[in-house]
Amino acid sequence: MRWTVPNILTVFRLLAAPAVPIMFLYFARPYADAFALIVFLLAAITDWVDGYLARAWKQETKMGTMLDPIADKAMVVIALMVIAAYSSYSPWLILPATVILFREVFVSGLREYLGDVAGTLKVTTLAKWKTTAQMVAIAVLFSQGIFEHYFGMWSWGMDQQIIIDVLEGREVDHLGLRNMYTGMVWSGWIGLALLWIAAALTLITGWDYFHKALPHLKEDG
């Protein structure tokens, strides 16, 4: 493997994937959410940077071409598993996550079967938007965990009615509970909306890839 800068960034992204759940093993929430968000954002940024540098510096390699989609899928799949595990298994999150995971496994298996032919099936612009939507959705959902836990920490031990009065403006908000609650609600809704959009794009691009692969799956004779 040629250790070019783009390839080093791709390997970093590949190693960052398992680092996301490790944050939840060694840190309490909401710090785990914050560290996981930072790791995920850095990895997502390198996804664009390594491709740009590889083209600009003419350093595209076979190893980099192979590792790049693997790193993307590892980041998305592992991050979704972590988010789903801490979401109380909400069906509104589990369903689009399942669609994304199923598509990635299906297409990976299809590429493995096609072998060298898979390289002729080019990545579409829509597939790139799919990956972008997935990563933005995951980043927003990680941020929701931060808002949620700070809201829980700051309101711990408070009477339920007082919390309601603070949120509705009848009590002075000394702690900033309204900001945390607003951030928690909006990041949750926006994150879910983006995840459903990503799931829809995932289905469309998965079907497109399968349709392009069909001629290579026909039986001889």
Results as ranks from 00 to 15, higher is better:
1 M>T: 09
2 R>C: 06
2 R>S: 07
4 T>E: 09
5 V>I: 13
5 V>Y: 10
5 V>T: 11
9 L>I: 04
9 L>D: 08
11 V>I: 11
11 V>D: 06
11 V>Q: 13
12 F>T: 10
13 R>D: 02
14 L>G: 12
15 L>R: 02
15 L>D: 09
17 A>G: 08
19 A>M: 08
21 P>V: 06
22 I>L: 13
23 M>P: 15
23 M>C: 15
25 L>C: 14
27 F>L: 15
29 R>H: 14
31 Y>C: 07
33 D>G: 14
34 A>L: 15
35 F>A: 15
36 A>T: 09
37 L>F: 03
37 L>Y: 00
41 L>Y: 00
45 I>E: 06
45 I>D: 08
47 D>Y: 01
47 D>N: 01
48 W>F: 14
49 V>R: 01
51 G>E: 02
51 G>N: 05
52 Y>W: 03
54 A>F: 06
55 R>S: 15
56 A>P: 12
58 K>C: 04
59 Q>H: 11
62 K>W: 07
62 K>T: 12
64 G>S: 13
65 T>E: 12
68 D>Q: 04
69 P>S: 06
69 P>Y: 02
71 A>Q: 04
72 D>N: 13
72 D>R: 04
74 A>V: 06
77 V>H: 00
80 L>Y: 01
80 L>T: 07
83 I>N: 05
84 A>K: 07
85 A>S: 12
86 Y>T: 10
88 S>W: 03
89 Y>L: 14
89 Y>A: 12
89 Y>V: 09
95 L>E: 04
99 V>Q: 01
101 L>F: 08
102 F>V: 15
103 R>N: 14
104 E>G: 00
105 V>P: 09
107 V>E: 10
108 S>E: 02
108 S>M: 02
112 E>G: 15
113 Y>I: 09
116 D>G: 15
117 V>Q: 09
117 V>I: 05
117 V>N: 07
118 A>C: 07
121 L>C: 05
121 L>Q: 07
122 K>G: 12
122 K>L: 05
122 K>N: 03
123 V>M: 03
123 V>I: 04
124 T>G: 14
125 T>D: 09
126 L>W: 08
126 L>D: 02
127 A>C: 07
130 K>C: 08
131 T>V: 15
131 T>F: 12
137 A>F: 00
138 I>L: 06
139 A>W: 00
142 F>T: 03
143 S>P: 14
143 S>V: 13
143 S>Y: 05
147 F>S: 02
148 E>K: 15
149 H>F: 01
151 F>H: 03
151 F>V: 08
155 S>Y: 00
160 Q>T: 06
161 Q>F: 02
166 V>A: 00
166 V>S: 03
167 L>K: 03
169 G>H: 02
171 E>W: 01
174 H>A: 09
176 G>E: 08
176 G>L: 08
178 R>H: 14
179 N>W: 07
179 N>D: 06
181 Y>S: 14
182 T>C: 13
182 T>G: 03
184 M>W: 08
188 G>Y: 04
188 G>R: 13
190 I>G: 03
197 I>E: 01
201 L>V: 04
203 L>H: 02
204 I>T: 00
207 W>I: 12
209 Y>S: 06
209 Y>V: 13
217 L>T: 11
218 K>C: 12
218 K>V: 12
220 D>G: 09
